[in-house]
Each structure stands twice: as structure tokens, then as C-alpha cells.
């Protein structure tokens, strides 16, 4: 069973919840899909054993033969190629690596090479968490290319916990799309509710069942609860707004380390989700 942990609003506690889930069941695969800012490793402290470079193909242009590369420039949907007279100015960060410029450009004058855009790292956290994370290189915008590599490494025979990137755009869709169930973490504030509603819309479109965990319970107002009640959305758990929990977090410790009572709560949530998923 694959459980993703997502949130429209950033900083609501996705990693807190995902790490607590993984530590509660002890044996699972954990994947940090937030490749632009991965941080679950700070809490799970995996022993990284393998690092794979992720590359994409990018063109380079053999200028100097007096040939025009205007066809490449005209073709490129992302305006990554500017061709002026016989010169080419290539904007690497705009290139999506489609290879079109090689096909339409002067024969043999546009070649391809591998450009590193980031890494995926594999490790282990005792007693039984297989850890996987993606890390996009600063400056690269190819978030989903790294996530594609993570997706290929999903262990479908085990429980999998996916820590998603914040927001509701492509990178979030990539992270949740393989999951059997998505836990949406929110906070009881107007901002939290606004982004929760957007996330719910995305999940409904993807036909992924979901439940809500409210973090920092005690702040804000009760609109999130009212919304969930009137829309028949299950609230799986409330985590109180507690300075002691924050202190543990700041030291790289999880909810489970804070109080082992949380472990039972998360095990129960997983049982509950498993029942719901198996019915469908």
C-alpha cells in the first residue's frame, strides 16, 4: 500500500507526519519526493549507500560552419534557442531536452550531451526503513525528471510512505499519483483551509481517496473542521500546537520520540487506511 502525505500550504507538517508514519510501522519504504527541498533525511538519518546521478539530454550547437540555426530557434517552444545570424545563444535552464532542435537543425551540427540535474540517494534506517530521496540541483527546473526516477524505484510489494512537495502543481501530482491513499496535512487557519480545498480538488480529479490530519490544533479557527464535516471528509488525527513538539522537531526528532503514544495513533491510522483501500 502506498500512502502519500501532501499539503497545499507549505510548512503544515507533511514531513512530521510522514516520518512519524514510517517510524510507527518500522518496516516500509520511505520516499522524499520534495526534490526541490528534501529534508526527511534530517529526521530519519538514513545511512546513504547509493547515489545515482540523474541527467537529461541537452543540445550543443556546432557553430562556426556558417550554418543558420534559425530552424532550431523557430521550433523551440520554450525559447531556449536564440539564433542570430550564424550565432546561437542557448538558455540551458529553459531547455526541456526534447531533442527537436537536433531533428530540425542543420544536419550533424546539433549534438546532444548529458547534463546532470540532480541525484537520487538510497539508504537504510534501522530497523527496516528503506529510504529514497531525490535532490534537484540548484538552478535546474526539472523537478519532475527527478521524480520520474523516484517513481521507477517504488517498492510495490511493501508499505510505502511518500513525503510530497508542498503545493498543488505538477510536482505534487507526480508525488501523489502512484498512491492508494493520500493524507492531507493542514492547519486550522484560513490559509490552511484555502489550500486544503485546492488539494482536495486535485485528489478528486485523480480519484485518490484521502483523509485529513490537522496539525497545530488550537490555533486559528474551526473553519477547517466545519468544512470537513459538511463535506463528509474524515479527519484522521489532530496534532496539538505544542511548543514541546516544536522543540523536538528542531532537534531532528520525530513525534514518536516525543511521546510513544503517537506511535499507536499512527499505527491505527494505517490500519484504518488499509481497510478503506482494501474495500475499494
Amino acid at each position: 500500500m502506498i500512502i502519500s502525505v501532501a499539503s497545499g500550504k507549505g510548512g503544515t507538517g507533511k514531513t512530521t507526519v510522514a516520518v512519524a508514519l514510517a517510524k510507527s510501522i518500522s518496516y516500509c519504504q520511505f520516499i522524499d519526493y520534495d526534490v526541490e527541498a528534501p529534508n526527511a533525511d534530517l529526521f530519519l538519518k538514513p545511512d546513504i549507500k547509493h547515489i545515482n546521478n540523474i541527467t537529461i539530454k541537452q543540445p550543443y550547437f556546432l557553430t562556426g560552419l556558417g550554418k543558420s540555426f534559425k530552424a532550431c530557434s523557430d521550433f523551440c517552444h520554450y525559447n531556449a534557442v536564440a539564433a542570430i545570424d550564424n550565432k546561437v545563444i542557448f538558455f540551458s535552464e529553459l531547455c526541456h531536452g526534447c531533442g527537436g532542435c537536433i531533428l530540425v537543425g542543420p544536419e550533424g551540427s546539433v549534438r546532444e550531451r548529458d547534463i546532470k540535474i540532480g541525484e537520487i540517494r538510497k539508504g537504510f534506517c534501522p530497523p527496516g526503513i528503506n529510504f529514497l530521496m531525490g535532490d534537484l540541483q540548484p538552478g535546474s527546473m526539472r523537478t519532475t525528471a527527478i521524480q520520474n526516477e523516484l517513481e521507477k524505484n517504488i517498492d510495490h510489494d511493501n508499505h510505502v510512505i511518500i513525503d510530497c512537495p508542498p503545493g498543488n502543481s505538477c510536482s505534487m501530482v507526480m508525488a501523489v499519483r502512484s498512491s492508494d491513499f493520500c493524507i492531507l496535512v493542514t492547519e486550522p487557519t484560513p490559509f490552511g483551509l484555502n489550500d486544503l480545498i485546492i488539494s482536495i480538488d486535485v485528489l478528486k480529479n485523480l480519484k485518490i481517496p484521502f483523509g485529513v490530519i490537522v496539525n497545530r490544533f488550537g490555533i486559528g479557527n474551526d473553519e477547517v473542521f466545519k468544512y470537513c464535516r459538511s463535506n463528509n471528509i474524515k479527519i484522521l488525527l489532530k496534532i496539538p500546537n505544542d511548543i514541546e513538539i516544536a522543540k523536538y522537531y528542531s532537534q531532528g526528532l520525530s513525534l514518536i520520540d516525543f511521546d510513544s503514544l503517537w506511535k499507536n495513533k499512527f499505527v491505527c491510522i494505517i490500519d484504518e487506511i488499509e481497510k478503506e483501500v482494501s474495500v475499494k
Binding site: S73, Y78, N79, A80, A82, A83, I84, I89, F91, L94
Partner: peptide, 19 residues
């Protein structure tokens, strides 16, 4: 015509100006 492109509007517009 570049004003509504997703990205690289300046690149395209500059190229056209140079043309």
C-alpha cells in the same frame, strides 16, 4: 507575439528585433 509565451518572451522578442 511573444508576450503570451510561457517563458522566454524576452529571448524571442529580442531575436525578432535583431532580425
Amino acid at each position: 507575439e511573444s508576450r503570451n509565451t510561457m517563458g522566454g518572451a524576452g529571448i524571442q522578442a529580442a531575436q525578432k528585433a535583431l532580425e
